[in-house]
């Protein structure tokens, strides 16, 4: 565990909690892509099946349970409790265009052709693109609430910090996982455009709105 890994995890946790609190406090999930949240719930579920088969550390187990629990809670708030506020008309990204190719790729490119390993690989690939419905929704409506942009910032920052963590681990531990690294690079690149808008607009006190 190095500082980049730890801050990455905490950044991920911050993102998840910001989103939950935003929905809970405002009693509304307006502007949030339920599809992205379902994809993240799928990501955590398929990745953390090893909760049942392997014990790594108390930290590892607790974080996994928190991530899974929060992601299902978020999906519940969007599709059940505050369903009336869900903006389904703007959440029109076709998720099958992500899930099907990602599923195929995880069968083709993996570390080991076993069910748990393929599901883990699926989760890594899916996570890389799971934010696309949310970004698509923002590009469609042309704006995002500031709190939503904070959520996206921490979510993007998390994988960027993991990239530094992987460089660190390669140099100091000789550890690297090519699948995670390539997917993590793709994932981080998808946020670059957003990071630019976040720094040039949101951090200067302006609302994130895109030119028509």
């Amino acid at each position: 565990m190095n500082i980049f890994r730890l801050t990455g995890d905490l950044s991920h946790l911050a993102a998840i909690i910001i989103l939950l609190l935003k929905i809970w406090k405002s009693r509304s999930c307006a502007g949030i892509s339920g599809k992205s949240q379902i994809l993240f719930a799928m990501v955590f579920t398929t990745r953390y099946l090893d909760l049942l088969t392997a014990y790594i550390s108390l930290y590892n187990t607790s974080m996994k349970i928190i991530y899974i629990g929060c992601s299902y809670a978020t999906v519940y708030l969007i599709y059940a409790k505050f369903k009336a506020t869900y903006d389904g008309n703007h959440d029109t990204f076709r998720v099958e265009f992500l899930v099907v190719p990602v599923g195929g790729l995880s069968f083709l490119v993996n570390h080991d052709f076993s069910p748990l390993e393929i599901l883990w690989t699926f989760s890594i690939y899916l996570e890389a693109v799971a934010i696309l419905p949310q970004l698509f929704m923002i590009s469609k409506t042309g704006e995002a609430e500031t709190i939503t942009t904070h959520y996206l910032f921490f979510l993007g920052l998390y994988r960027a910090l993991y990239l530094i963590n992987w460089v660190w681990r390669f140099y100091f531990e000789g550890f690297f996982d090519m699948i995670a690294i390539v997917a993590g690079v793709v994932q981080t690149i998808l946020y670059c455009d957003f990071f630019y808008l976040y720094v040039t607009k949101v951090l200067k006190g302006k609302k994130l709105s895109l030119p028509a």
């Binding site: 991920h12 790594i56 590892n60 996994k64 991530y67 080991d112």
Partner: peptide, 10 residues
Amino acid sequence: EEDKPTKDEL
């Protein structure tokens, strides 16, 4: 099983 990557990351 030794060369399997460990899944200690989240």
